[in-house]
Simulated assay, not measured.
Amino acid sequence: MAIAAKRTPQEAKEALAQRRAKADARAKAVIEALRNAGDLRRHQAAADALEGLLARATGLRFGTLADLLAPQPWALDEDGNILGHLLTVEDVVYLAAVADDRVDGLTLGEAFSLPWVNLDEREVWTRVYADALRALADEAEGQLEAQRRREALRQLASKE
């Protein structure tokens, strides 16, 4: 009892090649969709960071520790070096960074751990960071001193 072949080896090879081509096309479509989703997430993260700055209406003020620790949108070059804050870089740099997906949300401390293209720009941000930390430390010391004076006044008042 012989079984008749339904297709020739050449037909089977062609059918397999077609299935592989279809599978490759589906895989490429899925990969492209994942890339687009990743791009969308990164653009959304930059938009969220900018929206957060606008919603807090603080702009680039760093008056609290939370402000210093909040992620900020930074423009990066092709090598991952900091070009500057997305709100302070020139329009050309801003547009190129957003278009090429070279924006990252980093705290000031994280931004300082990366190399900067322009050391004068980094100096400005280092000064902002240091001044904000000094102001926070001065405020904490002032609050401590005020509490000590209140406590001393209470002790004097309780003796009388």
Results as ranks from 00 to 15, higher is better:
Asp120Asn: 12
Glu51Ser: 12
His43Pro: 01
Leu76Tyr: 01
Gly80Ser: 07
Ala135Leu: 07
Gly109Phe: 08
Ala135Met: 08
Arg41His: 09
Ile31Val: 13
Glu110His: 07
Arg148Glu: 00
Ala55Trp: 10
Gly63Leu: 09
Glu123Val: 05
Arg42Pro: 03
Ala25Asp: 15
Pro115Ile: 04
Arg26Glu: 14
Trp116Lys: 02
Ile31Thr: 15
Arg61Trp: 11
Arg35Gln: 11
Ala140Leu: 08
Glu160Gln: 06
Val92Glu: 14
Ala146Tyr: 07
Ala70Asp: 13
Asp67Arg: 06
Arg127Phe: 11
Tyr129Asn: 09
Leu50Ser: 04
Leu76Trp: 01
Asp101Met: 10
Asp138Lys: 07
Ala45Arg: 07
Glu141His: 13
Thr107Tyr: 08
Pro115Leu: 07
Trp125His: 04
Ala132Ser: 13
Arg61Val: 05
Asp77Pro: 03
Arg26Asp: 13
Asn36Arg: 14
Ala23Ile: 08
Leu95Tyr: 15
Gln44Arg: 10
Arg56Val: 05
Arg134His: 12
Val103Ala: 01
Leu153Arg: 06
Ala135Val: 06
Lys159Cys: 01
Gly59Asp: 07
Phe62Ala: 02
Arg127His: 13
Glu121Ile: 04
Trp125Ala: 00
Arg127Val: 09
Thr107Gly: 05
Gly105Phe: 05
Gln155Thr: 00
Glu139Ala: 10
Val124Leu: 10
Gly109Thr: 10
Leu153Thr: 03
Ala152His: 12
Ala140Ile: 05
Leu50Gly: 02
Leu40Tyr: 14
Phe62Trp: 06
Gly80Leu: 04
Ala70Glu: 12
Glu151Asp: 12
Trp125Gly: 00
Ala46His: 04
Ala25Met: 11
Leu60Trp: 15
Ala97Asp: 00
Lys159Leu: 02
Val124Ala: 08
Gln155Leu: 01
Ala47Asn: 12
Ile31Asn: 14
Ala137Phe: 11
Ala29Asp: 13
Val89Gly: 03
Pro73Ser: 03
Glu90Leu: 05
Ala132Phe: 04
Ala70His: 11
Ala37Asp: 15
Lys159Arg: 13
Leu76Val: 00
Glu32Ala: 09
Leu65Ser: 14
Asp104Glu: 13
Arg150Ala: 03
Thr88Met: 09
Val117Phe: 05
Arg148Thr: 00
Leu65Ala: 14
Tyr94His: 12
His43Ser: 08
Glu123His: 13
Arg35Asn: 12
Leu136Lys: 02
Ser158Val: 03
Leu87Pro: 04
Asp24Ser: 07
Leu106Arg: 03
Leu76Thr: 00
Asn81Leu: 01
Val124Arg: 09
Ile82Trp: 00
Leu144Phe: 12
Glu160Phe: 00
Pro71Gly: 08
Ala130Met: 10
Leu53Ala: 01
Asp104Ala: 08
Arg154Trp: 00
Ala57Arg: 15
Arg41Ile: 03
Leu54Cys: 09
Ala152Arg: 11
Ala152Lys: 11
Ser113Pro: 03
Ala96Leu: 10
Glu32Arg: 09
Val98Gln: 03
